Computed example of a mutant assay.
Amino acid sequence: MTNETTARRLFEPTTLGALELPNRMVMAPMTRNRATFEGVPLPLMAEYYGQRATAGLIVGEASTPSPFGFTYPEIAGLYDDEQVEGWRAVADAVHAGGGRLVLQIEHGGRIGHPDNNPGGHLPQAPSAVRLPGGIHTPTGHQEAPVPVEMTAADLERTRGEFVAAARNALRAGADGVEVHAANGYLLNQFLSSSTNRRTDAYGGSAANKIRFVVEVVEAVAAEVGAERTGLRISPWNTGNGIDVSDGDEVFPALLDAVSHLGLAYLHIARALPGEPLFGKLRGRWTGPLVANPELGEELPIPADGGLAKGVELLEAGADLIAFGRAFLANPDLVERYRTGAPLNPVREDRSMYGRGPEAYTDYPFLAS
Rank of each mutant, 00 (worst) to 15 (best):
G204A: 06
V148W: 02
V179N: 00
L333M: 14
N116D: 02
S63K: 00
P13Q: 12
R211M: 07
T238I: 15
E358W: 09
R167S: 05
V258T: 01
I268C: 07
P73Y: 06
R197F: 14
F68Q: 05
R110A: 13
P145I: 02
G173L: 12
M150T: 01
Q124D: 01
L131F: 05
H113M: 02
L261V: 13
P67L: 05
G340M: 08
E297K: 11
A253D: 12
Q104M: 11
R130S: 15
L343P: 06
G98V: 05
G287R: 08
G140Y: 10
V146W: 15
H136W: 13
T5G: 06
G112D: 00
P293Q: 08
A308M: 12
G69P: 09
L16H: 01
E227A: 15
G112R: 00
Y48C: 02
F68I: 12
L261D: 13
S127K: 03
V163F: 03
A125T: 01
A326C: 05
P302S: 09
Y72V: 07
D256H: 03
G225C: 13
K309E: 02
E74L: 10
Y337V: 03
V163Y: 01
P65N: 04
A93M: 03
R198L: 07
L366Q: 14
A326V: 02
R228D: 07
T199L: 15
K309Q: 09
S351Y: 11
T137A: 07
N292W: 03
I105E: 00
T64S: 06
A152T: 15
A201I: 11
L103K: 01
P273K: 03
E227Q: 15
R159H: 13
P331M: 14
Y360F: 14
R88I: 09
I268N: 01
A128K: 03
K209R: 15
P345T: 12
G86N: 11
E297Y: 14
T229H: 07
P67D: 02
H267L: 13
K209I: 05
E143W: 04
G50T: 04
T151V: 13
L186Q: 01
G274R: 05
N188Q: 15
L261H: 08
D92G: 10
K309G: 03
G77A: 04
A164M: 12
A18Q: 11
L186C: 10
F365Q: 03
V148Q: 04
P123G: 04
P235I: 01
A226Q: 00
A207K: 12
Q104K: 15
P29R: 07
G317Q: 05
H260A: 15
A206F: 03
E249C: 15
P132R: 06
Y337T: 02
P273C: 14
Y353W: 11
E143Q: 06
A7D: 02
S194Y: 12
E315W: 04
Y265T: 08
G262D: 08
D80T: 11
W236N: 02
D256Y: 04
W87S: 06
L313K: 01
V290C: 10
P345V: 15
G317D: 03
A96I: 10
K309F: 05
G112P: 00
